[in-house]
Design a binder for these strands. Structure first.
Lengths: 348, 348
DNA sequence: TTGAAAGCGTTACCAT
DNA sequence: ATGGTAACGCTTTCAA
């Protein structure tokens, strides 16, 4: 079933059918109805490929996210979901590309074969070849996160530095003096992940300001690593009374490690960090944290990208978000005697 | 940059370039090299739209998953990730469609506009209009899950009935006599979600076989609902000593509710169910559960779909998976005295 | 208000 | 082994 067939049955030309359907030029009410009847009868829909070929637009957005090798986090899930829904509202479809770098086959296909009109990039690194590549090509894209030099770029990001600073100040205000920082995996830090770097930066800065004794750790994106990490922390400095983390996937393990070590949250150990709200609420006690507004960020990214596609010459825009800390139940005043002997280590 | 330009520069015809690139007909080593040089120099890649229009194949798979209104679960994330990676291995891209029913605009676009060569459907219902629609159209698709009458269809599914039965038997073997079943939200049950129905069926059957006293509950897909659900369970029958659940998203809340009620897992309350392994390990104590092999299922679905696309007349195939229960730390022998007084209700 | 026809960039059939 | 040329199904300019 193609447009010619519709034209034939409606007794009009193909161009008239096209215009009747797109509304790009006036069509008499009568012929429009005639056409619509045939279209409805046959359930006709124009072929996306043909249309894309003819007008150069695919009505598809690319969503570039890292391959599954890195465990996915709940946050990423929320991004994907909100991007897809926001795009659907603009009648855009979303094509997924599991690409960490711009040399990925999938990434090359996306651009080289012109499969999408624009792209949204997740998991930005401070020096990101995908971003560079795209901007060199002047290819319409929006980053979720910002590179080291975000000027002139389109992005929506989180102010991880400020967020983590706030976490530290919150803990310092509660009297904590010895705090640990649980970052994302070392490999991600080495690769230059934005959140890992800026978070660490905020941590270091705020800790210095408050004159705190701190240690920083990298931690795998899974529960086991979280548990191990806590063991290291308490081994390195048993007097540690709080931690702040960016590592959502390790959260459950962090809690478990603390429990195993006989530390009660929040009575004698406080935990906070930057985590998507939904996931902060699955742990007990619920996590006091800066809630990553993943859904909102996905939506904003789509809004920005669509705007950029509609107005190719629009000046670069961005959104830097700094959500407040949601006070829940995982932080409390320091002061309880840290349980330095290892006797309770065997507690179930 | 198009194929004509390449042809011109290489001093050959467009068809020769096409054949040199696709290998669909022999090309002399010399011209092939000449062409390849030009292609590499200019970084030429054939346009996906033009190619799709010409040969009728988009090299794109559709992944139909429910809209975000229903909270996403970790399991779904694992599916999406594994489908995308498996597809990439076959050089297919994945187009996401957030569609609950076949009347969704997004779903209609996917099919009507012929945007994809085949589709993978998530979150199957026992009576599923999308499945019916697709099979009526003889459109190549594979379901993750199976409908009430899966004969003649392509799918990969989990034997929820058997899985939940096993959970019940496991608990019964441990001496539990009063068990609760925590299902997915009522709305999903009403809509006919496969896992919710078959899981419930397995629960009822096994409970009858073992002569257990049971109650079944629906529970929202979030931690708060889980907590509330436990309160209801213990209110309805304080002598309940175990529960089995399909509700991954509520798991954290279930644990919290139990802790609040002063029930220690697994000493005086056992928890088990069907949950993706990664998520079963984030709670403390780690959940003894039938691990949903989400990644494997995604991969299998892609394998099946690609096979179906390559061999249009291949007979229907499917995979029914019954992963074993992974014994972790959340179940134990019944017998501890349930703490029926409400005094501990105020425990932090 | 409508129609005719020229693309859009490939692929694949028919020749040579 | 290679070239010419019709499709593929739409959009859009140009004419009327």
């Amino acid at each position: 079933m193609n447009i010619g067939e519709i034209a034939r049955r409606a007794g009009v030309s193909r161009s008239t059918v096209s215009y009747a359907l797109s509304g790009k030029r006036p069509v008499s009410e009568e012929t429009r109805r005639k056409i619509q009847r045939v279209v409805d009868e046959l359930g006709y829909r124009p072929s996306a490929s043909a249309r894309a070929l003819a007008n150069g637009r695919t009505s598809t957005l690319g969503l570039v996210f890292p391959p599954a090798g890195n465990h996915y986090t709940g946050m990423q899930l929320d991004f994907i979901g909100s991007v897809v829904e926001a795009a659907a509202a603009y009648d855009y479809d979303v094509l997924l590309s599991p690409s960490g770098v711009d040399s990925d086959r999938s990434f090359q296909r996306l651009l080289g074969e012109r499969r999408v009109d624009g792209a949204i990039l997740m998991e930005i690194r401070l020096e990101d070849d995908r971003v560079d590549h795209l901007s060199a090509l002047a290819f319409p894209s929006v980053a979720i996160g910002r590179t080291a030099r975000p000027e002139g770029a389109w992005w929506v990001g989180l102010d991880h530095t400020a967020l983590v600073e706030r976490c530290v100040h919150h803990l310092a205000d509660l009297g904590h003096r010895r705090i640990a920082f649980v970052n994302r995996p070392e490999q991600l830090l080495r690769t230059g992940y934005e959140s890992a770097h800026r978070g660490l930066e905020g941590f270091t800065k705020a800790a210095a300001e408050r004159g705190l004794t701190v240690r920083t750790y990298c931690c795998g994106d899974d529960a086991d690593s979280g548990q191990t990490c806590v063991e290291r922390i308490l081994h390195d400095d048993p007097a540690t009374t709080a931690l702040v983390t960016l590592n959502e996937a390790a959260l459950g393990g962090l809690y478990r490690g603390l429990a195993r070590a006989g530390r009660h949250v929040p009575r004698d150990f406080s935990v906070t960090g930057v985590v998507a709200g939904r996931w902060a609420e699955t742990v007990t006690p619920q996590l006091t944290a800066a809630d990553v507004p993943a859904a909102e960020m996905g939506r904003l990214a789509v809004d920005l990208l669509v705007e950029r596609l509609d107005h190719p010459d629009a000046p670069p825009r961005h959104h830097l978000l700094t959500p407040p800390i949601s006070l829940r139940a995982s932080t409390g005043p320091a002061g309880a005697r840290p349980d330095t002997d290892t006797g309770t280590d065997t507690a179930r």
